[in-house]
């Protein structure tokens, strides 16, 4: 699955349109607890979260993730977005809730840890 496929599947808005949406992704995780993401997730390419602070992008960066999807209509603040662009992490926002997003992406081939 590519980032551009996630945009379509989740009816998401691409908040970093200048970044590459053609990157291939194979795995994802959904969590609002960054400590858990750092503890249990490895080799995940996408982070889905309803949490909104710069530590989301920093966590994704530490884990070498390629894409962050803000769910439930959340949108990152300017600092988060700037950091994401610097770190080449695509940022999407969707109105759908976390559980629904995970279900849709799983149904279309993305897997967890």
């Amino acid at each position: 699955m590519k980032i551009k496929d996630i945009i379509e599947l989740l009816n998401a808005t691409n908040l970093t349109p200048d970044l590459d949406c053609e990157k291939e992704l194979h795995s994802a995780c959904g969590s609002d607890m960054m400590s858990d993401v750092l503890a249990y997730v490895k080799d995940q390419a996408v982070l889905l979260t309803g949490l909104n602070n710069p530590q989301v992008i920093r966590t994704a960066d530490m884990m070498d993730m390629l894409c962050v999807v803000y769910v439930r209509g959340k949108k990152p603040d300017a600092l988060s977005l700037k950091l994401a662009v610097e770190k080449d992490i695509c940022v999407l926002s969707t109105d759908k809730p976390l559980f629904t997003c995970c279900g849709i992406l799983y149904d279309n081939g993305l897997r967890g840890a």
């Binding site: 609002d32 607890m33 400590s35 949490l51 602070n53």
Partner: peptide, 12 residues
């Protein structure tokens, strides 16, 4: 509420 404090810091 900021996404930390799950008791995983030092263990991680």
């Amino acid at each position: 509420s900021l996404g930390f404090g799950a008791g995983m810091g030092l263990p991680n």
